[in-house]
């Protein structure tokens, strides 16, 4: 069951900072559904995943499913 992290209305870099905190506390394999309407989130998730070794899928324009893989 994915944990829902609703960051709507929050500007960059808050969605990524909150996601980083949540992932840090999570167990390997945990899924997080990030909801963010900030235009920087999609681009930053790509960089974040590369830097932290985690994975993500784009579900819709504002919804991203992240899996703790590292």
């Amino acid at each position: 069951m994915a944990f829902e992290l609703d960051c709507r209305g929050k500007r960059c870099p808050l969605p990524i900072i909150e996601l980083s905190k949540k992932i840090k506390e999570s167990e390997l394999g945990q899924e997080v559904l990030l909801i963010s309407d900030d235009p920087a989130t999609a681009a930053d998730l790509t960089a974040w995943a590369r830097m932290t070794g985690n994975e993500f899928k784009v579900i819709s324009a504002d919804n991203f499913l992240i899996t703790k893989s590292n």
Partner: peptide
């Protein structure tokens, strides 16, 4: 930064 796939924040 986006086109290069680098962190934008």
């Amino acid at each position: 930064l986006k086109a290069m796939g680098l962190l934008t924040h």
